[in-house]
Simulated assay, not measured.
Amino acid sequence: MLAIPDSTEIYHASFSEFIRAKTSELERTVHEKIGWYCSQNMGTKYCTSNVIFHLLRSAESMKSKAVGLCSQEWIDTCVEIGVNPDTPILDLKSCLSAAIALSDASNVFRLLLLQQRVEFRYKTLFAKSAFLVAEAMTALKRPLDATRHAIRFNRPIISLEESSHLSYLLIEGEHQDEVFDLLGALS
C-alpha cells in the first residue's frame, strides 16, 4: 500500500474490489438499521427527512416500505419542518424507480401523480415566489431556510438582482455563511 513514500494508495485491482465488496455488504446493513430506526421515530427532523433515503438502500422488503411512505403527507411534513426542497424531490424520483423495479403498478401510478403535483408546486408555484419567501425567511431570522428557497439543485432560482438584494439582507442580519452559499451558487 505504500508504493510511494508519504502516500497511501491501493495498487492492486483485486484489493480495491475486495474493499468495495465488503463495504457494500456493510452499507446495506447500516441503511437497514437506520431506516428501521427512522421509520419508528418519524417525529424527528432527521428521521422524517431521511427515512426514505435509508429504506431505499436496504433490502427489497424495506424498499417497498419506502415506496409506501412516500406520500403527499410525507412531502407536506418535509415542507413544514424546513427540509431542503431538493431532498423530497430526489427521494420521490428514487421511490418511483424502486416501484418500477418492484413491478408495483398501483404505486407507480400513485407516485407519478404525486411527482406531477410536487414538481408543479416546486417548479411553478414556489419558484415564482422564491424571492418573496426567501425575503420573509430572512426577516424571520431563518437564513438557512431563505437560501434553501433561493437555491435549488445548487443553482439559484431567483434573478441576479434578487440575489444581490437577498445577499444584502443576509449581510444586514449578519448571516455571512448563507451569503457565501448564495454567492457560491451564482458562480
Score class of each variant (00 low, 15 high):
122 Y>E: 04
122 Y>I: 10
122 Y>C: 09
122 Y>S: 03
123 K>Y: 15
123 K>W: 15
123 K>R: 13
123 K>I: 02
123 K>A: 11
123 K>L: 12
124 T>N: 02
124 T>G: 06
124 T>W: 15
125 L>W: 15
125 L>F: 15
125 L>T: 07
125 L>V: 13
126 F>D: 14
126 F>W: 15
126 F>V: 05
126 F>N: 12
127 A>M: 11
127 A>H: 03
128 K>Q: 13
128 K>E: 14
128 K>I: 03
128 K>N: 08
129 S>W: 06
129 S>Q: 07
129 S>K: 07
129 S>N: 06
129 S>L: 00
130 A>G: 06
130 A>Q: 03
130 A>L: 03
130 A>R: 01
130 A>W: 01
130 A>H: 02
130 A>D: 01
130 A>F: 00
131 F>Q: 01
131 F>C: 02
131 F>E: 02
132 L>I: 10
132 L>W: 01
132 L>T: 13
132 L>A: 10
132 L>R: 05
133 V>Y: 01
133 V>G: 14
133 V>I: 13
133 V>H: 01
134 A>N: 05
134 A>K: 02
134 A>R: 00
135 E>C: 13
135 E>G: 09
136 A>K: 12
136 A>P: 07
136 A>I: 04
136 A>H: 04
137 M>R: 05
137 M>Q: 02
138 T>L: 11
138 T>E: 09
138 T>P: 10
138 T>G: 05
138 T>M: 03
139 A>R: 12
139 A>D: 08
139 A>H: 14
139 A>V: 10
140 L>Q: 04
140 L>I: 04
140 L>G: 09
141 K>Y: 15
141 K>L: 08
141 K>A: 08
141 K>V: 08
142 R>S: 09
142 R>V: 05
142 R>E: 07
143 P>N: 01
143 P>Y: 05
144 L>W: 14
144 L>D: 06
144 L>M: 14
144 L>Y: 14
145 D>N: 08
145 D>F: 00
145 D>W: 00
145 D>S: 10
146 A>E: 03
146 A>Y: 10
147 T>H: 07
147 T>D: 05
147 T>M: 08
147 T>C: 13
147 T>A: 08
148 R>T: 11
148 R>P: 04
148 R>S: 09
148 R>E: 12
149 H>I: 09
149 H>K: 09
149 H>M: 14
149 H>V: 07
149 H>T: 10
149 H>G: 13
149 H>E: 11
149 H>P: 12
149 H>F: 12
150 A>K: 04
151 I>P: 05
151 I>D: 01
151 I>W: 06
151 I>E: 01
151 I>G: 00
151 I>F: 03
152 R>C: 01
152 R>K: 12
152 R>H: 10
152 R>S: 12
152 R>L: 11
153 F>N: 09
153 F>V: 06
153 F>D: 00
153 F>K: 09
